[in-house]
Design a protein around this nucleic acid. Structure first.
Lengths: 219, 219
DNA sequence: AATATATTGTGAAATAATGCACATGATTTG
DNA sequence: CAAATCATGTGCATTATTTCACAATATATT
């Protein structure tokens, strides 16, 4: 068991968050940042920033702050984003298409190297990015042939499980699942779910709360 | 202060999660579900399910379980998704386009009623869904004219703050932000961030951990 | 060179969230 | 109709996460 296995999950999410302003500061040639400033920019508590970073080492200098370039480099090393990752995507509907074409991913080190669909009608379509949609059953051979690290599922919910099975049978260990379905995988497989409707539903709940509070206050 | 203000944030997220299998069960005419079954389908602990629901009332029957239809109705009422919500979106790049065309949202009660862009070149383009891209500076008048509940930001990061300002100046209280930038808003405004790269970075971190553990084990 | 000021790293307290385990009440069985 | 079974609701112990508050250390000032 590594020491790092007891690092809070939220800490990892925030590390990625911290890297965003740091990237901007690097571009702007600002050499030093304090936990207070970084915290403010990310909307968290300064002690939180320091503690998050301290899990992995002493990156700051007391009385001074953190060296921006160095801190960004360390965070990338910690997250594993100091190298490029190859992605494939299953389900070439609107969302899938937009992700493949989105160059934010490329900028951050993620390269789409294959696109799949379960629907034979979609197979063969050439995408603006240069990839051609492949039949999903060829995932295993493609993964071996091109070398793929991560799979993204953007199929309709009812096909998500099938897509997931194709991915983990091809020995992929990381899946980003955009469908509303929970996929079942062997536990060696890491699945991160992003259900966009869930996000909206959260937003709506908190909005309703806000309105209720207001009414109560107003009376 | 309402009683509901001390409900754990994770509980709200899980409520949305629970509704997914429930919808399927309603369609399949399965009348009753146990916390154990629901928990299994959502990958959580059964006691968690019961506790989450118990914050809002006694929806189950001891020795029996939960009536599926009723439970779904209650969850929708709690979340505020028992009515339709009007959305507008700012930033009609690939991602924006795909969200507007995505009918999952419509199915779940969210209607896109306006699409905006800051770039004059994009203005006037008619979308497959029927909407025409409007200039972002018209957000306030459109919000008043068509009635809009929520705003979605899909601009590049550098324009996200401007988009957010247009939205909250138009008196919108809920924003779903897909850009990598943290937007600053008055605190009456609720912002939900969905940074897709953050999700990938999390996935990558946990994958690296997995590999490290394996190597350690293998040695 | 002493003092003031800034800012990190961290132990300990406070807060939040989870999960166990069992009393409670419904249903089924013999 | 008593006993067995099932599954909820919940008090409480446990675990996880956040925040405070301060010692440690660097820099600026007088």
């Amino acid at each position: 068991m590594t020491k790092e296995s007891k690092i809070p999950r939220p800490t990892i999410e925030r590390l990625a968050l911290y890297s965003r302003p740091l990237e901007i500061f690097v571009k702007s040639n600002i050499p030093i940042i304090s936990s207070e400033k970084l915290a403010e920019l990310c909307g968290v508590n300064p002690a939180q920033v320091r503690k998050d970073l301290a899990y992995f080492g002493e990156f700051g200098v007391r009385g001074v702050g953190y060296e921006v370039r160095e801190l960004l480099r360390e965070i990338k090393r910690i997250l594993g984003t100091d190298r490029r990752w190859s992605l494939c995507i299953v389900g070439m509907g609107n969302l899938g298409m937009s992700l493949v074409e989105n160059d934010n991913f490329k900028q951050r080190g993620y390269d789409f190297v294959a696109a799949f669909d379960l629907d034979p009608k979609k197979v063969g379509i050439e995408l603006p990015c240069g990839l051609t949609i492949q039949p999903a059953h060829t995932i295993p051979e493609q993964v071996r042939a091109v070398g793929i690290d991560l799979g993204i599922i953007t199929t309709p919910s009812r096909e998500a499980q099938r897509a997931a099975e194709l991915l983990f049978r091809a020995n992929l260990k990381g899946i980003l699942n955009f469908s509303a379905a929970q996929v079942r995988t062997p536990e060696c497989c890491i699945v991160e779910n992003v259900d966009l409707s869930v996000k909206l539903e959260n937003l709506v709940y908190h909005l309703e709360m806000l309105y209720k509070e207001k009414n109560v206050t107003a009376q």
